[in-house]
Design a binder for these strands. Structure first.
Lengths: 290, 290
DNA sequence: TCCTCCTTGTCGAGAGTTTGTAGAAGGTAC
DNA sequence: GTACCTTCTACAAACTCTCGACAAGGAGGA
């Protein structure tokens, strides 16, 4: 959850609430009153919720309660914005239904509610990715028309594009993302981009059907930490095997999508991203260092 | 004398905002607070947006936040509130430049300012469409790489997708939009959709590479007032001529894009949208009644 | 009353992080 | 040629971390 007022370090929090830093740390370790996030270096980062708890704690202390009791009450006091009671299953069902009926308004509204209640990562992992898979399956079995698939893809793509705004910004390692020549399915790649973005990377996105030579030129120009190429069928990779190998010699490369195999990855000197986009983003963020 | 709307070098910026150059560079490299353009020789060239970000950064620092946190908030802070004195030419130039340099942040910021100052219709007509044409030309003459074209298309598409939110909503006549089988260029079609939307129509969008039979089924299900099919080359239309004619018998049909000809339109019983997307949307809104 | 145990606020040592600033070596603009 | 700019590296001050210790005050028992 993103705070609008920003995270405070312990010194500034102490000044604002009038409680010495040592005591704030003591209240945290003894009663679990606060659960600040941490900076990469380990500094405590407090949110508005922590400020509120401290206020409650102090008011109970002032009325004569012991510290332990005051902390217990502060912890039990209502989390103010009261977690919205929206049901993931039901709302996902509504999304599905709306997309099937070409109702972009209701679909977007369902996505809005899901995003607000569960956050980007959860919605991507629990709703968008399963839906994309399901859509593929239904299309193969003829249960969904191509029109439905197109319509739904476009709505989802529009939404993801909104989430992706500014994903090239920042100072983290850069990922350069592209679909293999001929490959048009890019939604999972966008999800991967959003997931590495959430882990501090920058993303440069070239999208569907990107020729390998121009990808290589771009890699030379931007010097990304990782280049990711995806395809849904093996033939797409087979056609560009040699070029991929040359690219893999010059830059850190990963292949992904149903068309990627471990054998291919080994042959071209690439990482094989075989799992779902979010797990693989997690892995990349953990293992691939600049 | 440097112009107010032009670029500033780091010394001049430093004097204006009262922050030493070393610190400006540190904020850029540590937090990605600024993303200045560069001169040919590598000098940083700052825009008004950078000045604004520094002001936000300083105000947060003054309120006691850490530098990292202040920078995070400054980056997340909304783009400037529609300066009426903004220069269309200059900002369009900045957009172009940003897209050429794979800088999605600056591109989106330029688009923000343009949209706020001139409105959707003007920006589509005066900026987006000319840019798309130019990109096509530059690509043909080899002045732009395919990667640049892909990158720019994706940024623009993302932005248009945001504008398109909810375009299926309402009670007006409905337009069903699709690209012919094999056709992947859909940006002009999206612009057309936005333009008819602005004239009170509802839009259902199926996007690139839509098979004719599924388009026909969808038309039967939704009973739109107008179905629009586009292609950039004639062969795409030739391949589906008979199906188009059958579709034209059942519903009001229009063909558009560089691949559409008056002869084709007559032969399949369709309207020929030959002009730019916005003029044609204007015409459709005027002439095609439910 | 004295003693012990517990709670609670405070303090310090030693190590690590964050951030503003500075210098070296070299390139750009006019 | 001069003023200005680049990147890279380094550094010190301010801040925060953890861990351990300690004293004041209160509760309960002998």
């Amino acid at each position: 959850m993103e705070s609008t007022t920003g995270y405070l370090r312990i010194g500034e929090l102490s000044r604002r609430v009038g409680v010495p830093p040592e005591l704030l740390r003591a209240w945290e370790s003894r009663y679990g009153l606060l659960s600040p996030a941490r900076s990469r270096g380990g500094f405590r980062l407090y949110s508005d919720e922590d400020v509120r708890r401290i206020a409650v704690m102090r008011s109970h202390l002032a009325s004569g309660l012991s510290a332990a009791e005051a902390a217990r009450l502060a912890l039990a006091s209502p989390a103010p914005p009261a977690a919205p009671g929206i049901d993931l299953e039901a709302t996902t069902g509504e999304l599905r239904d709306a997309l099937d009926r070409f109702d972009d308004v209701r679909a977007n509204s369902a996505l809005d509610r899901l995003l607000a209640a569960f956050g980007e990562e959860t919605v991507l992992a629990e709703v968008v990715l399963p839906y994309l898979h399901e859509l593929g399956d239904r299309w193969e079995t003829g249960a969904a028309s191509i029109a439905q698939e197109h319509f739904a893809s476009n709505v989802v793509r529009g939404r993801l594009a909104g989430l992706a705004r500014g994903w090239g910004q920042g100072i983290g390692p850069r990922a350069l993302l592209a679909c293999a020549p001929g490959e048009l399915h890019d939604l999972a790649l966008v999800v991967f981009g959003l997931a590495v973005r959430a882990r501090g990377w920058r993303v440069t996105y070239l999208g569907p059907d990107t020729p390998l030579d121009t990808l290589a030129d771009t890699a030379d120009a931007l010097r990304p930490t990782l280049v990711v190429v995806t395809a849904t069928v093996r033939a797409r990779f087979r056609a560009i095997r040699d070029e991929l190998r040359r690219l893999g010699e010059r830059t850190r490369l990963a292949v992904a999508g149903a068309g990627a195999t471990g054998e291919l990855a080994r042959a071209v000197g690439a990482l094989h991203l075989a799992g779902d986009p979010i797990s693989e983003a997690e892995r990349v963020a953990r293992e691939v260092l600049p």
